[in-house]
Amino acid sequence: MYMKPIKIIECPRDAMQGWPKQIPTAVKVAYINSLLRVGFDTLDMGSFVSPKAIPQMADTAEVLSLINTADTHTKLLTIVANLRGAEAAMAFNSINYLGFPFSISPTFQLRNTNSTMQDSMERVAAIQQLCTTHQKQLVIYLSMGFGNPYGDTYNETVLLDWAAVMAQMGIGIISLADTVGLATADQVKQALEVLIPKYPQIEFGVHLHSAQSNRAAKLQAALDAGCQRFDGAIGGIGGCPMAQNDLIGNMDTSFMIDYFKQQQIPIAIEESVFEKSKVLSSQIFS
């Protein structure tokens, strides 16, 4: 039996950010309040980015001011793409983590954060310093972590080299992001089998966008490699709107929970509350 504790990071931000219909702030607040009581380790609930780029997330500050973080152990994460966004996030004591999408595809880094790889490294260093000062933690997502649709050079060495750079910068949590669902199960397993033993001071996770046809294989590959941090979104909704036209959805949280239960992996989920959250999700994303 797999006895290591599993962390599930629920990502309503990822589900909402590319949704074509504007979701009212009050609806987001009700949904996030429900999710906060499910038992997830962390909620990736919003982002401080340009409202021109991601208009759906323009009300993140308002949502944060309205949600109820009492009586929950779930921590909050918001995505930022530059120092200005990170500084805005510092105003909220309720935020535990800042997430920065660092693409190992130069083309996607320009598309997603309007910065070069060098500029992005400088941003990471500045945001890391800010987080240290304000007792928050920076989570680096190595996006396009298993390949990209742009023809940029990719191999396992590219991924491992960038992970080494982040380790040298003192990053404590790194999530390997299969941004457009290109990863094979073997890629996921091989990368984590190298990284987890090499950097025991770092918590490695996976953010696996995936089609139904190979999601079980990818999930099992990460488990086999010793991964304990898994991102998902209820219903498998989501995808990065800056990536390409055909979005590959997130790993469905319901599927992950069922899969972990079948494997007799202990998870701290309040199932009755989770079912209520699923109902809300189906009403929002319809």
Rank of each mutant, 00 (worst) to 15 (best):
L35R: 09
R37Y: 00
R37K: 15
V38R: 02
F40K: 10
F40R: 09
D41E: 14
D41C: 04
D44L: 03
D44R: 09
G46F: 06
S47I: 07
P51D: 04
P51E: 09
P55L: 02
M57L: 15
D59P: 07
D59F: 01
T60N: 07
T60A: 03
T60E: 05
A61I: 09
A61W: 05
E62H: 10
E62I: 12
V63R: 12
L64V: 02
L64M: 09
I67D: 02
I67K: 02
I67N: 03
N68V: 07
N68M: 04
N68H: 11
T69D: 07
T69I: 13
A70M: 12
T72W: 11
H73I: 11
H73T: 13
T78I: 14
T78P: 08
I79N: 05
V80N: 08
A81H: 09
A81T: 15
N82G: 03
N82S: 06
N82W: 04
N82V: 04
L83V: 13
R84G: 14
G85F: 08
G85M: 00
A86I: 13
A86Q: 08
A86W: 04
E87Q: 15
E87W: 08
A88I: 01
A89K: 11
M90I: 13
M90W: 07
A91D: 13
A91Q: 13
F92L: 04
F92P: 01
F92H: 13
N93L: 00
N93I: 07
N96L: 03
Y97N: 09
L98K: 00
L98T: 09
L98Y: 02
F100H: 02
F100D: 01
P101A: 12
F102T: 10
S103N: 09
I104W: 02
S105Q: 01
P106T: 00
F108T: 09
F108H: 15
F108E: 03
Q109G: 08
L110Y: 10
L110K: 15
N112Y: 10
N112A: 01
T113M: 06
N114C: 11
N114R: 09
N114W: 01
N114E: 04
S115I: 07
T116L: 02
Q118A: 15
Q118C: 05
